[in-house]
């Protein structure tokens, strides 16, 4: 319990002269559901790849269950389930054959869970993979990753191609399997509303650096937008505390501040002689604000 399930320190990755990741520090413990959000090209998939050992980092280190990601022992690998963004299914064989194939690769296989999920998610198992739709392929990939009861489940854009109903079912299932707090789930997505339901920890990747990593609740409570309406013109060099970004125009100012606590509003109101409206933001708005 005390040893983090996954951790990265000073992680950096440079490919062909382009810096994909810089100085990423994370540490997550068992039972968390972690959501990774970022724009396309922000480095989400690269980060996941490095954490899982598919790719060596250019600097820094990454560890899973205490072991270096590049040298994971076989037992540790058996405790990981991974659903990649581009599925790695074999086109010519059926879903059922895939399940048989994967079950032969793991000592522990929960056939009942898989059968139930195949029914609930409506995954056709008797047709060759090459004629399945993209959504069905994604669901099959998820099935294959869940069958061996992994302790760490990593999903890269798992629901991107699913319709809203399928996505809801998928999320509910994720919640179901994470409910006993022994499993850690890490998933990257750009569907922010899904994250808000499911995740308790959030990593926000912006241009290869972690703009935020922490609890989702703390994020919503501590990063707020302030709208300031003063009676007199505000000083041009006004610096609101912990402002991530601010705009000042005569008697009006707007700022995105972090590390906010509700008690601060009165002090600020007094010191600026202004009215202050505190707006808390949903995750999507926060994301947009951070990238503005």
């Amino acid at each position: 319990m005390s040893q983090p399930v996954l951790s990265a320190r000073g992680l950096g990755k440079v490919i062909k002269g382009r810096t994909i990741l810089k100085d990423v520090h994370v540490e997550e413990h068992r039972g968390s559901v972690i959501g990774v959000i970022g724009r396309n090209g922000a480095g989400k998939t690269t980060l996941l790849d490095i954490l899982l050992g598919f790719s060596p980092p250019t600097s820094g280190e990454s560890r899973l269950f205490g072991h270096d990601s590049l040298a994971l022992p076989a037992t540790v690998k058996g405790r990981i389930g991974f659903v990649p963004q581009q599925d790695e299914l074999i086109p010519m064989i059926t879903g059922a054959q895939h399940l048989a194939l994967h079950s032969s690769l793991h000592p522990r296989w929960n056939g009942d869970l898989v059968a139930r999920l195949a029914r609930t998610w409506e995954v056709p198992l008797d047709r060759p993979v090459q004629i399945l739709s993209v959504g069905e392929r994604q669901k099959l990939s998820s099935l294959l990753a869940l069958g061996h009861d992994p302790e760490l489940l990593v999903l890269d854009e798992p629901a991107a191609s699913l319709d809203p109903l399928a996505r809801r079912r998928f999320l509910q299932e994720l919640l179901e399997i994470s409910s006993d707090r022994t499993r850690t789930i890490l998933f990257s997505t750009h569907i922010v509303s899904d994250l808000e339901r499911v995740a308790d920890r959030i990593w926000i990747l912006r241009e290869g650096a972690l703009a935020w990593s922490g609890d989702l609740d703390t994020l919503k409570e501590s990063v707020v937008r302030l709208q300031v309406r003063a009676r007199r013109a505000l000083p041009a060099g006004l610096a609101l505390p912990h402002a991530l970004r601010q705009q000042v125009r005569e008697t009006w100012a707007s700022a995105l501040v972090s590390q906010w606590s509700p008690g601060e509003v009165q002090d600020l109101r007094d010191s600026l002689d202004a009215e202050i409206e505190v707006q808390s933001l949903g995750l999507e708005d926060l994301f947009v604000e951070l990238h503005a």
């Binding site: 086109p91 010519m92 064989i93 059926t94 054959q97 048989a100 194939l101 079950s103 032969s104 690769l105 060759p128 090459q130 004629i131």
Partner: peptide, 19 residues
């Protein structure tokens, strides 16, 4: 969807549970 040759091939897939 299915081509004839891959179909023939897939009939030969034998997943025997041997790793």
């Amino acid at each position: 969807g299915t081509n004839t040759i891959p179909w023939l091939l897939s009939r030969w897939v034998r997943v025997t549970g041997v790793r």
